[in-house]
Amino acid sequence: MKPVKHVAIAIVCAAALMGGARAVETMVGQKGKIFTPDEISRAKGETLRIANDDSIPHNVQFVSPSGDKKNLGLQMPGDHADVAVDQIGDYQVVCGIHCQSALNSFQVTAPKSFQLVSPISFVFCAA
């Protein structure tokens, strides 16, 4: 039974690792009030995880290509915010507290062969 138990544990661990790898596949940090990296391109259907790896609170807000605004609330140090990207085009991502902290370009492309070429986002920090 012992080898079977080891295999089971290995399968569970592998599944957890794979699941974890998917969850943090697209990661942006905020250390020093700067999004790093500040240019990113993802495929539709993915999730962008923005981690607060800074020592102060942040407030991720974004505007989708269709103009919908969403405020993801307060992220304390160690927290993260997930942006589900379900539209093709340019997303504008900004910290509502630190307006110099913005993604210069966050481009979402089609998931398969079709690639949308978009200009760099114009980022703003108005409420």
Partner: peptide, 22 residues
């Protein structure tokens, strides 16, 4: 270019009036 509560004794909510819940 950021927004901070610097602890002034003032009832004006500032940016808090525009962005609620933060």
């Amino acid at each position: 270019d950021s927004f901070h509560d610097i602890g002034l004794p003032d009832a004006d909510l500032g940016r808090g009036k525009l962005v609620e819940g933060v």
